[in-house]
Design a binder for these strands. Structure first.
Lengths: 313, 313
DNA sequence: CTGAAAGCGCTTACAG
DNA sequence: CTGAAAGCGCTTACAG
């Protein structure tokens, strides 16, 4: 609906040709001015930059990217960054990716704008989202962290839990625990299943409870240990227990999962299943590079949790 | 150094033409297969996809972006994501940006790979890095959060501190504080200066101490209040004080800055200068949109801190 | 110091 | 169902 010529359409962003026309020069003179290159008179440069400013001109990443080498972009899919677990992982990925000259576009599940379209490869907790790798969808290299099921062709970093869970359970049993509660999501996840299995192997039948249960909901079970879904939930439970005057670890022991550094600062300090997130990040990046260069088979890396006993058990 | 033709060079990534040649079809047939479009026989599609897989073909974001509308990309520059302050802000930015159809490329200072080249606009704590907006450098819309000094043409979100600092200081004085220590970075920052000014206005001269000082360094000053550089530092101090058996808040009061949610979970719960990060994020995004559409003057938004008194004071 | 030409990798009409 | 042509916005040699 814009006029025949000269009447700038309101929607379309200014392009290098618009600036060239406005400044009365050629396109590559605009390039020279805008990119601060040599071989252009000060006067011309000024005129061009003025025109660019006037038109609110911003060079297109795409035009530029097509023609000159530029950083590759890694799509990173994490859970809620509000959880330090994901934030810490992201922090390491950012650092390692930058070392290798990659940019990182990030998304939380539910806010995946166009991760796939904006990235050259994708890494992350795909269990949280990313269902749509349709037959012909832009098939990027993908590395999944802690995936619920294997996806052929994708790399994956598995977070091994069995060993550390065994250690934790042994630790609890050794301190007299007989009536543990394992808290988990509705469908049950590998974390919950691992604890349940380990307790059973020792002849103790744990009670299952929903992740978000509070002490008020659990009190009647008279539990002597609570396995929280993660550290954040563990903090919440510790606070509730303190509020109700329930002694931790004397009367009830509490274990978290994730190994958050802040667990050192709550009272009592929270025992937890920790994992080296820097190692997870490193493994994921190694795999994604591998995948984008050669086409490897089904590359897998395994990173183990370890049990960290602190004061809450 | 690759052969005359047919000998694939090792470095160069496969392009749509390579696939077309390998499959013996035209470029747009490749497009149809790869993008799962209609108007192509199943057999041809299979043949093309096989060739694509064989060549490890991944469509170029740039070629594609140039020709079809795609999400805009916001560059977000935050501090260490390991600090929940930045992580929480990033989380909100991610969500809001996705609502508006933007992608977000993220960087921490020191890991800024090519933020400027990879984004259509930049938002963040530019005080932490980003010095190089040279004369002709790719001039994107920029919104600075809590900038150390105003940069003409840039939008900015100012984090107002004076009011909340006054409240905090009044609160402390009201509880008998007379020998406060204000901890800050070497050059002193606006947060430190605000506290110092507020104490002086009330006729109390605070002692300045380096941000990373521990109780061992401060004990001899016999302070009755510690103003930590941020909440994380506050947690550290609380732990040290508990370890040394120093009563908080009876003997020493502790104030943090940032308003981290975990401050609710440490013991005693940390009093702090909080700010609504969602509001900061929203203001920054509003400005950046404004800046990339019209060219506004020097758009500014102000978001206030507020003092949250908890148990540590 | 400045400009005309070619090409980066892709998709969108348009013919057949 | 398939392909030849044009063009997206930019930069890189190459002439003048």
């Amino acid at each position: 609906m814009s006029g025949p010529t000269g009447t700038p359409g309101p929607a379309r962003a200014a392009t290098i040709v618009d600036v060239a026309r406005a400044a009365g020069v050629s396109r590559q003179t605009v390039t020279r001015a805008v990119n601060d290159m040599a071989g252009i008179s000060a006067a011309t440069r000024e005129r061009v930059l003025a025109a660019a400013r006037e038109l609110n001109y911003h060079p297109s990443r795409f035009g530029r990217g097509l023609v000159k080498p530029s950083a590759r972009t890694l799509g990173l899919l994490v859970g809620d960054l509000t959880n330090p677990y994901y934030a810490d992982l992201a922090s390491t990925v950012l650092r390692l990716a930058a070392d290798r000259g990659w940019n990182v576009v990030m998304a939380e599940p539910g806010s995946v704008a166009d991760l796939v379209g904006g990235a050259d490869a994708v890494v992350g907790f795909t269990g949280l989202a990313l269902d749509r790798p349709g037959p012909g969808a832009p098939n990027l290299p993908v590395v999944e962290i802690d995936p619920p099921r294997v996806q052929p062709g994708h790399g994956r970093v598995e977070l091994e839990r069995a060993t550390a869970t065994g250690d934790a359970v042994r630790h609890l049993l050794g301190r007299g625990v007989r009536r543990p509660v394992v808290m988990d999501l509705p469908g049950s996840t590998s974390r919950g299943r691992a604890f349940t299995a380990a307790f059973r192997a020792a002849g103790v039948e744990p009670v299952a409870a929903p992740r978000e249960a509070g002490w008020a909901d659990l009190r009647d079970l008279d539990p002597d240990a609570l396995v929280a879904f993660n550290d954040l939930d563990g903090f919440r439970l510790l606070r509730d227990l303190a509020r109700d005057g329930v002694g931790v670890p004397e009367r009830v022991k509490v274990v978290g999962v994730d190994g958050l550094a802040v667990g050192e600062f709550v009272t009592p300090r929270l025992s937890t299943l920790a994992i080296d997130l820097a190692e997870v990040a490193r493994a994921a990046l190694d795999l994604v590079v591998e995948l984008s260069e050669r086409r490897a088979g089904d590359p897998v890396r395994v990173v183990p949790h370890r049990f960290v006993a602190r004061d809450s058990t």
